[in-house]
Nucleic acid binder design. Structure first.
Lengths: 204, 204
DNA sequence: CCTACTTTTGACCAATCGGTTAAACTAAAT
DNA sequence: ATTTAGTTTAACCGATTGGTCAAAAGTAGG
């Protein structure tokens, strides 16, 4: 079957492209490096994806959609707010720690091509309004303080994403550049962040 | 006087380099573009700063040090914690809103050259341990909850920096890509973030 | 084995980019 | 006026980069 082979190399290319693009960004990445990482000829990249731009877009889309399901799963579950948060934070930090360059990569590239980002959001299944609604419902139930639900969501995302995006800086500033200390700290943060947020919003 | 001229062009170059580097990153920036922005010949860039690397380093250092004084001023004041936070958050958000590409730029580039970052921190006058100590003292005074002071500091930074670094995304997700709505939201956040933090850590 | 098709490769190209050089310009000093 | 020093420019260079192409290698049905 020809499709098996095709899918195989196409996927090999996408994985290699992810590794290189995410580390070096669109501008810093070299097509040759991606080809090497995939163990194939450079011309083959252009055979499957016509240009660097198109390969980048495919890569970015794939990477971007990795992060969506966890967000939406939090909304759709019907657990109490404490456990929703618990599940979301733990899962999110896990994903990011396995792909520590991912946040910075996304942050950098969304500045370069906002129109492409707009398309991506539409086709990603991400529904921010549902998340906002979920928080609103909790406020009406009286379980959490009344506030702008967007503020709450953005704050939670901030607390999860930023400490991983700024890893090299934090690592130097607070952990003597010791990777283990840093990792343990982030691990502990799964609890810390949850407490920090709940302490702030929960009505006891 | 020759020095006046020299200082003038050197500064013109640095300003132009900041504009271009911060928007496009080290790899995306072109020497020609920086020269155009500064209104000079490309060779002049190499006359003042030998290479792109050196010009970039000078730029990054200048940019990085912009953010330090505000942090340290918070530590050294002897106001109550509420007002320290108030001052810091308001000032910090103001600085970032005037340079919205700055956070992403720094986050991206600290990943590329961590050794240079290490040097920079040493020579920047930034003393993270003093900030940590300040929070510790507050905890011993009993004004705020006992917790890892690093967690607290990092959380505050997260809440301030991330919403600006992710501007294009938030703008699309929550504000229909309307810049005014977004700006007003961030402006309101000066209060929101302070309340969010104080609510979480203050012992009433 | 042959044929028709897709996949993969090595060699190559034009454009771009960082960097160099030698000459022109400026102005203070003698 | 000439020298001397630093400053600025235009033209140029080699290397790298994204991209192309024609041919080779692989694949499957007849």
């Amino acid at each position: 079957m020809t499709n098996i082979k095709k899918d195989n190399t196409e996927e090999k290319i996408l994985i290699a492209a992810q590794n290189v693009f995410v580390r070096k960004g669109m501008d810093g990445a070299r097509m040759q490096e991606i080809a090497d990482e995939a163990g194939i000829n450079k011309a083959l990249l252009h055979y499957y994806f016509r240009s660097k731009q198109q390969l980048f877009h495919a890569t970015f889309e794939s990477v971007f959609c990795k992060i969506i399901p966890n967000v939406m799963r939090m909304v759709e579950s019907d657990q109490p707010i404490e456990e929703k948060l618990d599940f979301f934070i733990e899962n999110y930090i896990d994903v990011l720690m396995k792909n520590p360059f991912l946040p910075t990569f996304v942050l950098k590239e969304i500045n370069q091509d906002p129109e492409f980002l707009a398309e991506l959001i539409k086709s990603s299944g991400l529904q921010p309004k549902k998340v906002v609604e979920m928080f609103k419902t909790e406020m009406e139930k009286g379980t959490i303080r009344t506030m702008d639900p967007r503020d709450l969501l953005i704050s939670i995302l901030s607390l999860n994403i930023f400490p991983i995006a700024s890893k090299p800086l934090l690592s130097l500033l607070f952990f003597d550049d010791d990777q283990k200390s840093y990792t343990e700290f982030i691990e502990r943060r799964k609890v810390t962040v949850k407490e920090f947020v709940l302490n702030s919003i929960l009505i006891k």
